[in-house]
Simulated assay, not measured.
Amino acid sequence: MSSLESKAKAFLGLHRPGDPGVFPTVWDAWSAKVAVADGFSALTVGSYPVADSIGRADGEGMTFAELSTRVRQITAAVDVPVSVDIESGYGLEPAQLIEGLLEAGAIGLNIEDTVHSEGGRLRTAQEHADLVHGLRRFADAAGVHVVVNARTDLFLRNDGDEADRVDRAIARLRLAAEAGADVLFPVGRHAEADMRRLTGELPLPISATVLPDQADKAALAAQGVARVSFGPFLQAALTAEIDRLLERWK
Rank of each mutant, 00 (worst) to 15 (best):
V147R: 02
F11L: 15
V146K: 00
A218R: 11
G231M: 02
A163C: 09
A179N: 09
E118S: 05
V26H: 12
D161T: 10
Y90A: 00
E201N: 07
A176K: 04
V22I: 12
R189I: 10
T124P: 07
E5C: 15
L14A: 15
N110P: 05
T114C: 03
L220G: 00
V146P: 01
H190D: 02
A215H: 08
E99G: 04
V183G: 00
F155H: 10
H190K: 09
A65Y: 02
Q214A: 02
D28E: 15
A129N: 12
S53M: 01
V26K: 01
A29H: 09
G59T: 01
Q126Y: 07
R189F: 09
P205G: 03
L245N: 06
V210N: 02
L67S: 00
V146F: 06
H116L: 08
R16P: 11
V144H: 08
A37H: 14
P94T: 01
R196P: 08
R123G: 14
R70H: 01
S53W: 09
Q73E: 01
D52S: 15
Y48G: 05
A150Y: 06
V26D: 11
I86W: 01
V45Q: 08
H133P: 06
R172W: 09
Q223K: 03
V166N: 06
L198S: 04
V84D: 00
L92D: 05
R137G: 14
V225P: 04
A179S: 01
P203M: 11
A106M: 07
D28T: 01
G55E: 12
L156M: 10
W30G: 15
F155T: 08
P94F: 07
D243G: 07
K33G: 11
D153H: 09
V144S: 11
L14S: 14
I242H: 07
R123H: 14
G55S: 06
A150R: 10
V115C: 11
P232W: 03
D28I: 08
G134L: 04
G108Q: 00
A139M: 10
R168H: 04
T239V: 08
F138C: 06
V225F: 04
V71C: 09
T239D: 05
G100K: 07
L211S: 13
L220T: 01
R151L: 12
S207F: 06
I98G: 07
L238D: 02
V183Y: 04
L156R: 12
L156F: 13
S117H: 11
P186C: 10
V183A: 00
F230C: 05
D19A: 15
F64C: 04
H128Y: 02
V146S: 03
V115Q: 07
E112D: 07
G39N: 11
E127R: 12
A237L: 00
L245I: 08
A8F: 10
F40N: 11
A240N: 09
